[in-house]
Nucleic acid binder design. Structure first.
Lengths: 157, 157
DNA sequence: CGTCGAGACGACATCGATGTAGTTCGAATT
DNA sequence: AATTCGAACTACATCGATGTCGTCTCGACG
């Protein structure tokens, strides 16, 4: 259903434009192991990192969490959990960070249950909007194609 | 109920013990204006800050948010909102930080509504547990008394 | 081949939040 | 009033995350 051919791949700068973070951030995340590109890690000067669609999705989730004031470390743990559930239908799922760990909740009911008993703060990321957003951005960035001529400048934004 | 009458007051170090933060943190928050003690700000070396019950509650909410990885700045904005709703019955309320602002939600239904339409991350603090916790800690800290004959100011609400 | 550009790398600077240590003052106690 | 103690103050160090800049290297293309 998702318009992913075999496997789209994205360069670092492309990912940055897609999700709206700086290259330094992505670079830092890759260097510190917070988010390793699935397709190809850097192997030295001149090499190129290659990111997966799911990588980009994770980056976008991380950015969302950062925007919400959540620290990188916590964001990373949350994304670990997200990765575990990648098989599921994420569009109808929310990523919930509880004080004791992160889970994927597949309904509002589950969320309410979690809130009920929990003490502490919950960070909730409705994944639907993140995925929609990302899809739109991918389309906007060069007709849905990821590779090729690195997608011309998108109006410099 | 014999305990906590109208207006207890707490010293800085007391607040720290109550909510489990370091004095340095509370000090920093007071100095940077993030959380000004309601009853008495510091007026120089040797002076003493005096905190309100609601101050302590706010501190505890801030700590909860910090534990959840939320930045101080965002936490502060959230607490602003909390302060606005201090009149209400907070025990059955959740503090919800949305991407666009913070609100007090008085039911799970409200929360679900918020989640439904929103994009981005939500930080949700069920206040009941915070309040319970705090009450228990206050009792544990000296029989419910806040501090001996220390200042009893009206301080309004 | 030699040039060139994109992107990774390295060494810094910065900024917010906090820890540590020592100093100084106000106020309660003697 | 003098002592003492607690708490605020000052100055510095630290740590994570990021910005800046300059360098290096791979790969493409002339």
């Amino acid at each position: 259903m998702t318009t992913r051919s075999t496997e789209q791949s994205y360069s670092g700068p492309q990912v940055c434009r897609l999700v709206g973070i700086t290259y330094r951030q992505l670079d830092y995340w890759a260097r510190t192991g917070l988010l390793v590109p699935s397709l190809a890690s850097a192997t030295g000067s001149g090499s190129k990192r290659r990111y997966d669609y799911t990588d980009v999705l994770e980056v976008k989730v991380i950015k969302s969490l950062l925007d919400a004031g959540v620290s990188l470390q916590r964001a990373r743990r949350a994304v670990d959990c997200l990765r575990d559930g990648l098989g599921q239908d994420l569009a109808s799922t929310s990523l919930v960070l509880t004080p004791t760990g992160s889970v994927l909740a597949r309904s509002n009911g589950e969320i309410v249950d979690l809130l009920q008993g929990g003490q502490g703060v919950f960070n909730i990321v409705p994944l639907a909007s993140v995925i929609d957003d990302l899809q739109a951005d991918i389309v906007a960035l060069g007709d849905g194609r990821a590779e090729g001529p690195a997608a011309r400048h998108p109006a410099t934004a």
